[in-house]
Nucleic acid binder design. Sequence first.
DNA 1: ACGCATAATGTGTGCGCCCACAAAGGTACG
DNA 2: CGTACCTTTGTGGGCGCACACATTATGCGT
Lengths: 392, 392
Amino acid sequence: MAVKKHLVSRWGFIISLFDVQVCFIPYYIIECDMEKLPERIRIKDIARLAGVSVGTVDRVLHGRAGVSPKSRESVEAVLQQLDYQPNMYASALATNKKYLFAYILPKHDEGSYWCDIEKGLDYAVRTYNDFHISIAPFYYDPYIPETFEECSKEVVDLSPDGVVLSPSTPEKTFSLTKELKRKGIPFVFVDSNMPDLEPLAFYGQRSVQSGYFAGSMLMLLARDEQEVVIFRHIHAKNEAKIMNQQRSREVGFKTYMTKYFPNCKILELDIDVELSPNQVDNLLDKFFIQHPNVKYGLTFNSKVGIFGEYVERRKRTDFHLLGYDLLDKNVQCLKNGSVHFLIAQQPFTQGFCSIDGLCKHLIFRKEIKQLNYMPIELLTADNIDYYVDKQE
Amino acid sequence: MAVKKHLVSRWGFIISLFDVQVCFIPYYIIECDMEKLPERIRIKDIARLAGVSVGTVDRVLHGRAGVSPKSRESVEAVLQQLDYQPNMYASALATNKKYLFAYILPKHDEGSYWCDIEKGLDYAVRTYNDFHISIAPFYYDPYIPETFEECSKEVVDLSPDGVVLSPSTPEKTFSLTKELKRKGIPFVFVDSNMPDLEPLAFYGQRSVQSGYFAGSMLMLLARDEQEVVIFRHIHAKNEAKIMNQQRSREVGFKTYMTKYFPNCKILELDIDVELSPNQVDNLLDKFFIQHPNVKYGLTFNSKVGIFGEYVERRKRTDFHLLGYDLLDKNVQCLKNGSVHFLIAQQPFTQGFCSIDGLCKHLIFRKEIKQLNYMPIELLTADNIDYYVDKQE
DNA sequence: ACGCATAATGTGTGCGCCCACAAAGGTACG
DNA sequence: CGTACCTTTGTGGGCGCACACATTATGCGT
């Protein structure tokens, strides 16, 4: 109702803009009876109002050449009055253009955090299926930057219409994005961001804030404890050792601790990702002998389940953990009580939104937000049931 | 790639199914060269494979009459082999059918919980705009069941293609849904559910579980407290007094308390919704004089901000609240510290999904899940920033 | 075997849009 | 003043689908 009135009131304006033409071709007045204005404006309507053919309107809409200044002006004036919104489905049907996307993610096992991102990507592709979308996957080893370089080369050679990637080292990521920018291929970051490289968009969590929040929740449990422990996974052979994401969360956590619990000692235990389960157990045994009083621990990655299972094996019901991501193992520990809190970051949504963003940009030509922070979700044994299986 | 291989392998099967026809019309063999199979199957392709015209395929797909058993069989066999998925956009374009929806919600003020539901409904309508969707709003006074009856009558007279509603009293809701069922109009519940009325779908939170969770979070703060207080809003003139939703949450909360904190006394303070702010203040003053030691309180509705503001006015920094929903006032109290936890239930998503569900059912003819529980989200001052403004 | 009613099937048009191509208008130059 | 060339504008076909309508096949009674 409101919309109709809107159009009607604007109508008088158009009439006055084009009164010359109205005088010359009086049937317009009849044709343009406001009762007859369709609820959804079509190119045909614009053409009629501007006194040109649909071809000309089409040319103006797509900014193509071959339109006289006079015609262009007429069309643009009409466009400014009625807010025309093209039927994207009819448009896609007519163009019949195929879109090829590519994504570059770390290699991963079944059930990992990255799987959920992939599911989101996949679901978005299925959602936009009728727009002729397909996607090509590429994987790199996060501990071997050269593998990222290989992916980069392949993706650049493929020349897709858009790329979704999780950044590797700053240098390697920069050289890829430079190449993509040169070829005019838009790219989107998931999980972690490098704003300087000016991606089309970023979808992920604000890591520092998330670590800060982790601190606040852990200390709700730990309260007057004199010490808590951070379990870190490192890759000894690699120079970077700890991934960006984790480091940022740790910074946020420590900021919180310094501010509110300056007297609580923060122990740290580094564990090489290449250690065997047995070696990890030994390491933990040794640690807990040295620190018999520590009752609260956390991880800044998704591997908290490893420690949860250790705690369960050792039948330590008094040790409580906080960690990230809804992996099956983590959820199990949450339900068993060895992990008290999990923080989730909507990987499925991240994946979905990445493709969604590319489509909105490329197909619908809409403005999209550059920084898209996922909610920092808190999961406990009591609300977890309404988070899992949310994804198709 | 994977898809193509899939189709190719199924191809041989089809050939063998229809070898009779292939013999008679040998050009099919050439036409059906697997290289030529389009990545997206169209009606035309099915027709060719089944040896009939597109009209016949169309009739089979829509279950319309006038198809010989033989032809139907051919078409169905082909359909079973290739998983044909119609291009819904082309379909919508061709049908040009208009869909009219209606929604019935409680009357509400700007910035309320219901507003977010409406925003979600509206956003979904905009999203599916190209499918010729429109929506008509209806409002009732939740404390006057007769107003719901009026809405019901108007909606039934309107005869929309689908209805979204928040249930009123069981009787009034039943008589509406009975009428809708009679007319074959699908309906969806938001916020609270009445499973017996067999809605097409429900989108909302599991109230009991949510109250249970509220208990677990409150007691994380309250721990060894001897008493906590429930603030309830009631409508004295109305026989029901307390809405369903709130009562269920209270049940969940008390279940938790009985299980884990049987010795913690639960005080209750009922407040009539028709009281003036001053009267409420007096009531609270009186309550706190009687109970000087209570430091934790909660509400099972979105009015926690009222108590937060009271606490702030009285400069009581030692009193902590838990409540529901991200109203501006509540969020402000959360940031000020008077409210410690808020539990959110994604009203925007509830609204969006309701229309989404109706569209999937009516337009896309997809199966949709009947029970859709929203996540039970926990908000604190430290993660709230990533929840607000999530909606368009 | 023929005519006729009815069932079965095929064809054509249009939804809103894009784009290739045809047609018309305008300009410059011999 | 006509021709060639360029600019500007209009037209038509087709994307995949639905549906009305035209056409053909089938069965049945006489």
